Simulated scan of single mutants.
Amino acid sequence: MEETKTFRLAVIPGDGIGKEVIAAGLQVLDHIAEESGGRFAFEKDTFPWGCEYYLEHGKMMDEDGVEKMKGYDAIYFGAVGFPGVPDHVSLWGLRLAICQGLDQWANVRPIEFLPGVPRRLNHPDVDTLNWVLVRENSEGEYSGIGGRNFAGRGPGKEVAVQSALFTEHGCERIIRFAFELARTRKRKRVLSVTKSNAQQYGMVLWDEVFARVSKEYPDVEAEQGLVDAVAAHFVLRPEELEVVVASNLFADILSDLGSALAGSLGLAPSANLDPERKAPSMFESVHGSAPDIAGQGIANPIGSIASAAMMLSHLGLEEEAEQLNRAIAETTRQGIMTRDIGGTHDTAGVTEAIIRNLAAVKATE
């Protein structure tokens, strides 16, 4: 009998509804492992890091937290943020600390228009829309370079400086990643997004690197756009989008726009990847911790479960990942959805439906 492959997962539920959607995702992963016939299993360690941990310990995670993560095959992350802890403290103290500490430099955020979800976009073929945002995840506007000064000079005198960092190396590796991803898709097209007319140093460097790298991919259509025009593009000509690559800030904003157009941030998965696999990658839904509905059992688990599908794919379980994505689509097609997208089901009901539909998907293969 073939030996069981065990994947070690570091689980960080985080705050608010993060705990609920991560529990739903783990329920689905455990079911998939049980149905594998012993081919693989998941060994999970849960870390209680987040805002409650901060309020008790004065820090969002253990001092050696990033080092602890290095022994795992993947990280499964819930959400971060809760009243009483400033957002910049919670974000920089946990999620960004892990992403930057492990050099998870490629953030991938697929945008899919699932069947049955109420339309937020007036487009004749909305069900055919499918694109992916590739976000530079290690530098750019989220480099954390800057400071505040002159507060001692009196009210209204303080100065804050926030600098964006663009390196040729950082630009090239994320742009090349986007072109390689485009080669795996039916329509081979990459749109690069900057604001180089106004930001004449870092983003001009990005544009120049994009132009240079694109010459190595003659089979992939390459286009460059300014972020304000591309935001309109998302609404007016979404059928032209395929792979969109941008800096940390711009891809962050555009991916939320895309997810909202697709129905809800609660549907959107993401992956923080170290494509070189020197360190574990982290998988999380795009939505926040939503403390206003935490504990009510009504959070949308689809984003977190779809992130689990991305994790399965990253771990080499491509067939299981595809089956899970099909089960999610079948669930929304059946109208089994949470309230944020017009449904009447709770977190548990949607999760159970996805598990049921996994069996139906496998039966049709």
Rank of each mutant, 00 (worst) to 15 (best):
G147H: 07
R189P: 01
L181G: 02
R135N: 09
K195Y: 09
R173G: 08
K195S: 09
E172D: 08
S196C: 11
G144A: 06
R153H: 13
S192W: 00
Q200M: 13
N197W: 10
K195L: 10
E180H: 04
R173E: 06
I174Y: 07
T194C: 13
K186W: 00
R176F: 08
K186V: 05
A160C: 11
S143D: 01
F177L: 11
R135W: 06
F166H: 14
E141R: 06
K157C: 05
R153W: 12
S143E: 02
E136D: 13
I175H: 05
E180T: 05
K157A: 10
V193R: 00
A164I: 03
V161C: 13
Y201I: 14
V159K: 09
G152M: 02
V193N: 01
R148Y: 01
R135Y: 09
R135K: 06
K186Y: 01
V159A: 12
N197M: 10
T167R: 13
G146C: 11
G140T: 04
Y142F: 15
K195E: 03
T194E: 15
K195V: 07
F166C: 12
P155I: 01
A198I: 14
E136L: 09
G156K: 04
E172W: 04
R173W: 06
Q200A: 11
N149G: 11
Q162L: 13
Y201V: 14
G170H: 01
R185T: 09
E158L: 05
G156F: 06
S196M: 04
I145W: 06
N137A: 15
N137H: 11
G202H: 04
S138A: 14
A178V: 06
F179S: 06
V190E: 02
A182G: 14
F177D: 07
E141T: 10
A198L: 12
Y201C: 11
S138P: 02
K188T: 00
G154N: 02
G146F: 12
P155L: 03
G202F: 02
F179V: 02
A182I: 09
F177W: 14
L181P: 03
N137I: 11
F150Q: 01
N137R: 09
V161Q: 13
F179I: 05
S163N: 14
R183T: 08
K157E: 11
R189V: 02
P155R: 02
E168S: 04
R187E: 15
S143L: 00
N197I: 09
T167W: 05
S196I: 02
Q200N: 13
R148P: 01
G156M: 05
A182C: 10
F150R: 06
E172K: 15
A151K: 12
A164H: 02
